[in-house]
């Protein structure tokens, strides 16, 4: 073992982790090679000197906590005033594309705030709302439920902060709702069409959308193989299982390929989505969640 090679094992030897043949070679070099001896001695000295790094350092300023809090407040204040046009553009495209489709999404949304019910805000005119910069990557599933009551699926969503939720679907008017912190949005979703529909939910505080695929209430099931986006995959699954599928999009675009003959249960869905970092859960009410 020459001096250069021996250097690679200095830390391991110092920490007693060098074993077997490597240890024998290293120790032989250490005994016989003056260069290795000198370098290892200097290395040991360095390791001892590095202990000085543990010594206490300058105390933080007494107002460190105040400084952090103030900067955080400023950051949040700035976020509230930062426009993000991208989101607005994206849901307007959906509105344009949805003229000829028959599916209908529930007609109203309401907010429950501290026990009082408020009517949802009307749909804004183009260029009307100021969209906030989104902060989180994905929707938090622990703050929402999709419940079935009187044969109507209802999305309940509890806000953690002030945010604007937009619910859209091809062929239906978009709904925009402004929520205060800890408000609960309650939005019935109905599909009176003959095929599954895809509802897209956006928040101005969340980077990626959430999809809710609703199976048709009346038509028989069509099973389609295919490939496509998370929303398209969710739609296909809702057809196959006859249950709503909620898919919470993550960072980055994922393209799925599926053969419905091979999808027999939740585990087989998980096999398909895991490559993109998603997992799958089925709730007691049958709703399938892709997270």
């Amino acid at each position: 073992m020459n001096a250069k090679k021996a250097q690679e094992y200095f830390s391991l030897h110092f920490e007693g982790e060098l074993t077997g043949g490597l240890l024998d070679q290293f120790e032989r070099a250490l005994k016989t090679d003056a260069q290795v001896q000198a370098e290892y001695r200097a290395f040991v000295q360095t390791m001892n000197t590095l202990e000085d790094l543990k010594a206490p350092i300058a105390e933080p300023n007494f107002d460190l906590h105040e400084v952090i809090s103030q900067r955080m407040d400023k950051h949040l204040y700035d976020l509230d005033r930062m426009p993000a046009n991208q989101f607005w553009t994206s849901w307007r495209k959906l509105a344009v594309g949805g003229i000829a489709v028959l599916a209908v999404v529930g007609a109203f949304a309401s907010i429950w705030s501290r026990g009082k019910s408020n009517q949802a805000n009307p749909i804004p005119s183009i260029g009307g709302p100021k969209i906030e910069k989104r902060m989180k990557t994905s929707f938090d599933m622990t703050r929402m439920e999709l419940m079935l009551a009187d044969n109507v699926w209802t999305l309940n969503y509890k806000s953690t902060e002030q945010e604007t939720i937009t619910i859209s679907s091809i062929g239906s008017p978009e709904k925009e709702v402004n929520l205060e912190q800890n408000d609960t949005l309650e939005s019935p979703l109905r599909n009176s069409g003959t095929d599954s529909i895809l509802v897209e939910v956006h928040s101005n505080r969340v980077q990626n959308p959430m999809f809710i695929a609703l199976p048709s209430e009346s038509a028989g099931r069509m099973r389609n193989d295919g490939n496509g986006t998370l929303g398209e995959f969710a739609t296909s699954l809702s057809v196959a299982f006859g249950k709503p599928v909620v898919a919470i999009a993550k960072e980055g675009e994922a393209k799925f390929s599926w053969m419905l003959a091979e999808i027999t249960d939740v585990a087989s869905i998980a096999e398909i989505v895991k490559a993109f970092g998603y997992s799958v859960e089925q709730k007691e009410n049958g709703v399938i969640w892709i997270l």
């Binding site: 250097q7 200095f10 830390s11 391991l12 001695r41 200097a42 290395f43």
Partner: peptide, 26 residues
């Protein structure tokens, strides 16, 4: 992590060797 730390320590040693008088590094 271990191999990079070893490399980092070797580099530190080289810098400290310049101060050999202070540290008695030979």
């Amino acid at each position: 992590v271990k191999s990079r730390l070893n490399r980092a320590r070797l580099q530190i040693r080289e810098h400290l060797v310049k101060d050999s008088e202070l540290f008695n590094i030979t």
